[in-house]
Amino acid sequence: MEVEKGKTHKYLREKREVPETVKENLKHFTRVKKSILESLRDGEMTIDQLTQKLGMPKSEVVFFLMTLIKYGFVETGQIDDMDEYYSYKLKQ
């Protein structure tokens, strides 16, 4: 099989099947990302507020929210009056 530079993934796709768990993981992340970004469209939110809106465990919200900050979708907002919880907002 001739392999064109820049399209070599097709070569490996012929030889190797992508596991179902990997596909499921991608779907899950895409779903969570969409939900978090849609929620933040209405304004800044804390992790507690996001947890209630998304119905996910807090630790999962922390993980995905921090990942979205890392990749430039979300940024950290203000901390509350007790200096305990930050709020988060969409990156402009």
């Binding site: 804390t46 992790i47 507690d48 807090k58 630790s59 919200v61 922390v62 993980f63 929210l65 901390i79 200096d83 305990e84 919880y85 930050y86």
Partner: peptide
């Protein structure tokens, strides 16, 4: 932060 809930 606490990984459990993001609290400082």
């Amino acid at each position: 932060l606490r990984p459990g809930d993001g609290k400082v």
